[in-house]
Write a protein that binds this DNA or RNA. Structure first.
Lengths: 219, 219
DNA sequence: AGGAAGCTGACAGCAGGCTGAACGTCGCGG
DNA sequence: CCGCGACGTTCAGCCTGCTGTCAGCTTCCT
């Protein structure tokens, strides 16, 4: 499942992101509502985790805007224990569930799992890309010759590109996806993995936009 | 599906009963273990919902007795959030799944639906995997040399993989299946069980996807 | 043509995974 | 009540193959 995490706190944010990843989902972590808006508009998320206390405005407005645009993406709000009014307003604004901070990570997993199970009945959406067939939930890529195995890093990059078809992702953005800390300087790791992906999946799968980054190829 | 609900609390019991009925199943609600024993012996249930906190003795004993008599009826246990030990003992005693109280009724429906779906392929859903033949209802695996016995934990992991053929399940996901709390750091329990399963069932049964998790092998 | 950006084959190091063995625990039968 | 056996868990040492770096090459733009 693709999950958007909107949380400004560094420690909590990274912990939650890691937990989501460990559960086999694909987290995108943003720290402001501005970024959240961008991410939400360009990517089809299966679930949004929204902290209601953010620096650049109330998360409630974001949630209302989302619902006003007709989005039905499940939203779980994160709220402090003493903010009961906020919680109720959140549910009224269209949140599906809430978690009170501080919360246990296992608790979070359970709630996310509940959402995942709700989707479990539906058939897995298969993404078709040229002669490739990708199952996000299963993390499986199938080509004309059968299944293609990707390593963890390869999948992370491919998954990031799949999330925003047509969008250009910079090397820095992709790097951020691979490493929690973006201290990576002077390394061509991303290029290496793009190269490996092309070798496995076909050269057309990933397009290079010189000076800008990479983009999913059009089949 | 005929469902036996063992729950002493009036409010919760009736709510759950109504929910089950609303889902199109047939609930029998009893409030004591004595009644439960009578009901279970006289009726063939497809599923048992068992609260572990009951007035006339621990529900665990009931569950053990049930399994000792050779019953393979699926059992979902209801347990309080802080009773982790109890939950683990429940799974050890042969429970198929657990739900943490307080729970959402939709969550309950989802779990029941999962069980229903699992046993939908009546009478005996036999899964073929290479030269293995797996009977989900009986928890029995048969190989070329005859029946292979799996312990509770071994089965739990194998079952989780069987439920999603081709999908990659992370260690965290499998761990969650065993304990429900993933505060587990620094433990290679999953690896050990995978190792044992491979020894019993053949190395090809479970594939390792380095850095991501495990996947059912393709025969 | 020249430089910058990107590509890719090779390779060493190491994190992650495997597994035999030992230990603790629990339920059951005597 | 006690011992036995099965099961679950931890530990340590080994092994595998992913990962990241480098160097030399190609491609693209001015």
């Amino acid at each position: 499942m693709r999950i958007l995490l909107i949380e400004d706190d560094q420690g909590l944010g990274s912990a939650v992101r890691d937990q989501i990843a460990a559960d086999g989902h694909s987290p995108d972590w943003v720290q402001t509502l501005a970024e959240a808006g961008d991410a939400e508009r360009t990517t089809a998320y299966d679930l949004i985790l929204l902290d209601l206390m953010l620096p650049d405005g109330a998360g409630l407005g974001f949630l209302r805007g989302l619902r006003a645009r007709g989005s039905v993406t499940p939203v779980i709000i994160l709220t402090a224990r003493d903010r009961i009014t906020e919680r109720i307003e959140g549910l009224n604004a269209g949140a599906d569930d809430y978690i009170v901070k501080p919360f246990d990570l296992a608790e979070l997993s359970a709630r996310i799992g509940a959402v995942a199970r709700r989707y479990a009945g539906n058939p897995n959406p298969l993404i078709e890309l040229g002669d490739l067939s990708i199952d996000l939930a299963d993390r499986a890529v199938t080509g004309p010759q059968g299944r293609i195995d990707l390593s963890a890093r390869e999948w992370a990059i491919f998954d990031a590109l799949l999330a925003r078809p047509g969008a250009i992702l910079s090397k820095a953005q992709l790097e951020e996806r691979l490493y929690s800390f973006n201290a990576e300087v002077e390394s061509n790791t991303i290029e290496v993995y793009v190269s490996r992906l092309r070798k496995k999946l076909g050269a057309a799968v990933i397009e290079t936009v010189r000076g800008m980054g990479y983009r999913l190829g059009q089949p």
